[in-house]
Amino acid sequence: MQKKGIRFYLRIYCKILAQDLKSKMSYRADFIISTVGMIFTNISGFVSFWILFRSFPSLNGWSYYEMLFLYGFSLVSITPVQCFFDNNWSLRQNVYSGDFIKYCFRPINLFFYYQSEVFDIKGLGQLAFGIGTLIYAWVKIGLPFSVLMLLKMTVFLLTASLVMIALQNAAAASCFWIENSFYVLDLVCRFKDYAKYPITIFSPVFRFIFTFLMPIAFIAYYPSLVVLRPDAVPLLSWLSPLVGIAFFFVSYKIWMRGAMKYSGTGS
């Protein structure tokens, strides 16, 4: 038996993904309706944003376009959780009905195997919205453009996305311990909406909470500063990739521990 490295898993994921997309095409109605739903969600987000901030030139020292940049950043960084980890939403159902047991018998990583089952294609619509917003805000603010900037942006976006993934993993895994964990997952899901505001609007106590206890500020605010305000990047911004990786690792451990503890329901 060969060792199962990253390449093994990547190959398996791509194959599952390809098959999954093929079969999704046969449910066109569902695909279209879900995509429209996703577009609706994004449009409603923009409308709310516009209604709130259209009449104010700045908010707490943040210009309209800087706010928009944050918004775009948060949209992009919450896309991976939507696309690749959507099966977390079914975890509770699977555990509750005992179906989760069927994932436990494969000779590959359980977490990987479980998450690989679902790829949520409608997240891509959100990605498009997010990138569009980022570019628009980038141009309007007049930020310089260079390959280095693009590279920084990519790295920080990717690691920022790990924070939301980590939060969702941990929340989903709570179903291994408590019965009605839907509320936990739902609560964490709402964090996505709070990520788009600059953390400076909060009082120091809540700034602390949203940085260290519920690290929402690492989803968009801290990582985006590296590009948005390159002259005054706080230390926490530079640390945000590490934070993302660390959180992801911890959440993975929690998830796996829960799954191992899991014993199926009776019978």
Partner: peptide
Amino acid sequence: TESIWGINIMKQVI
């Protein structure tokens, strides 16, 4: 339609 998620999210948003 089987698209419960899509239907629900549209309703909720509106």
